[in-house]
Amino acid sequence: MTIEAPETKIVETYRVACDGGEGALGHPRVYLQIPEGDGFVECPYCDCKYIHKDHVDSAA
Results as ranks from 00 to 15, higher is better:
39 G>D: 03
13 T>N: 12
48 C>S: 07
44 P>T: 04
20 G>P: 00
43 C>R: 01
4 E>N: 09
59 A>M: 06
34 I>F: 02
50 Y>H: 10
28 P>F: 03
2 T>H: 11
33 Q>A: 04
55 H>S: 08
33 Q>L: 01
56 V>Q: 10
56 V>I: 12
59 A>N: 04
25 L>C: 13
37 G>Q: 12
39 G>N: 01
60 A>D: 12
19 D>E: 09
12 E>N: 14
28 P>M: 06
32 L>H: 01
2 T>P: 09
36 E>K: 13
2 T>K: 11
23 G>Q: 10
57 D>A: 14
38 D>I: 02
17 A>M: 12
55 H>D: 09
13 T>M: 13
34 I>R: 02
49 K>V: 05
5 A>H: 07
30 V>S: 04
2 T>Y: 11
32 L>D: 00
21 G>M: 08
27 H>N: 04
27 H>I: 05
16 V>I: 11
9 K>C: 11
4 E>M: 12
59 A>T: 08
28 P>I: 03
34 I>T: 00
50 Y>V: 06
19 D>G: 02
3 I>V: 12
48 C>A: 14
18 C>E: 03
31 Y>V: 13
27 H>R: 02
43 C>L: 08
18 C>P: 00
46 C>D: 09
17 A>L: 13
32 L>G: 01
30 V>I: 15
30 V>E: 03
21 G>D: 08
4 E>H: 07
26 G>P: 07
18 C>D: 06
10 I>W: 04
7 E>K: 13
57 D>S: 12
41 V>W: 00
37 G>F: 00
14 Y>L: 09
42 E>K: 15
5 A>S: 13
27 H>W: 01
45 Y>F: 15
49 K>R: 14
13 T>W: 03
9 K>A: 10
44 P>A: 07
3 I>Q: 15
39 G>P: 05
11 V>S: 11
58 S>N: 14
3 I>A: 12
12 E>P: 02
55 H>M: 11
42 E>W: 00
60 A>V: 07
8 T>P: 07
17 A>G: 13
10 I>G: 08
13 T>P: 06
12 E>L: 09
4 E>F: 03
41 V>I: 11
25 L>P: 01
51 I>V: 15
9 K>Q: 13
42 E>R: 11
1 M>P: 05
59 A>P: 03
55 H>Q: 07
59 A>S: 14
14 Y>V: 09
46 C>S: 08
41 V>E: 00
11 V>P: 06
6 P>E: 10
56 V>H: 09
37 G>A: 15
14 Y>M: 08
50 Y>T: 04
44 P>E: 10
12 E>H: 12
4 E>D: 12
39 G>E: 05
35 P>R: 08
29 R>K: 15
13 T>L: 11
13 T>C: 11
23 G>K: 05
1 M>S: 14
48 C>D: 07
19 D>K: 04
25 L>R: 15
58 S>D: 14
12 E>K: 15
6 P>N: 04
